[in-house]
């Protein structure tokens, strides 16, 4: 590639990055603004951070989000992994049919999934006398998380050497033992990856939560949504700055670790 085209390439990349980061930069800067204004800089302050940590609705919804995401990701990982093993051993036709249904929540627009589950919970609630709340929110999250786990575990199962399982069985392993000691260690990267995707999806979700949580449970996204509509407070900016720093830290840590791993592998290949 010529130097000139490389220069244009980098300039273009920088422009796109500017587009992607301008709003985030604005959020961060105005989280330190000593006024409620979102556009006029008055002076530096930490007030919004202090208020954020005293805002019960924000903290409460933050905990709700965290608890829902952890439980939903954990349940989805266990159920998804076990189901993937089951699906993998099925004949092609039923397997493909089930995978098709499994993909419905992924392919459908979030709002359709949310609205459909809302209808289910409202109808069931009328019969079984319950209302939308934390329980329905959790069920919804588990439901849209499992497909991600299955999709991330299935390729690993396809790579798995079946002879290993047969050998374990021949050597007297029970099927559960074979699952635990042979299959699980082999598909582990897929399981971990699936768990991480599931957790991210849960943390990030707004639309499906909005339709399935009712009024008694509120996730962080829902609180932010109601705040952006009614009272716009720079606490939101403070909150997003904190989230940004946390996410940046996590991503950097993961990246540095994996690039180190890469280098170690390179060295291994050389020797």
């Amino acid at each position: 590639m010529s130097r000139k085209s490389r220069f244009f390439g980098r300039a273009y990349t920088a422009l796109i990055l500017l587009f992607l980061y301008a709003p985030i930069f604005v959020l961060i800067v105005f989280s330190f603004n000593a006024s409620k204004s979102r556009t006029v800089w008055v002076g530096f302050t930490f007030d919004w951070y202090r208020e954020l940590f005293h805002d019960a609705s924000i903290l409460g919804s933050f905990y709700t989000t965290l608890i829902v995401s952890v439980i939903a990701a954990a349940v989805a990982t266990v159920v998804g992994t076990i189901s993937a093993v089951g699906l993998h051993s099925m004949k092609r036709r039923p397997r493909n049919a089930l995978l098709f249904i499994n993909n419905i929540p992924l392919v459908n627009a979030d709002i359709i999934t949310g609205v459909a589950m809302c209808l289910l919970f409202v109808s069931l609630g009328r019969v079984l006398r319950f209302e939308l709340g934390f329980g329905t929110l959790l069920i919804a999250h588990i439901t849209f998380n499992i497909p991600y786990v299955i999709l991330s575990v299935m390729p690993k199962l396809r790579q798995l050497d079946v002879n290993l399982v047969s050998a374990a069985r021949d050597l007297g392993c029970t099927w559960f033992g074979a699952l635990r000691r042979v299959i699980l260690p082999e598909i582990r990267p897929g399981v971990i990856n699936g768990a991480m995707i599931a957790f991210t999806m849960s943390i990030d979700d707004f639309v499906i939560s909005y339709f399935t949580a009712g009024s008694s449970a509120q996730t962080l996204s829902m609180t932010i949504y109601s705040m952006t509509r009614k009272r716009i407070s720079p606490e939101i900016n403070a909150l997003s700055t904190l989230l940004f720093v946390v996410v940046l830290g996590l991503l950097l840590a993961v990246n540095i670790r994996s690039s180190r791993q890469d280098e170690r592998e390179k060295i291994k290949h050389k020797t």
Binding site: L27, F206, I224, L248
Partner: peptide, 20 residues
């Protein structure tokens, strides 16, 4: 990483920033 980073932040917050 830089392209994925904004995706990890709540989309409502980022959209709200566009308002300002």
């Amino acid at each position: 990483m830089l392209i994925m980073l904004p995706m990890w932040m709540n989309f409502l917050l980022r959209t709200y920033a566009w308002m300002s």
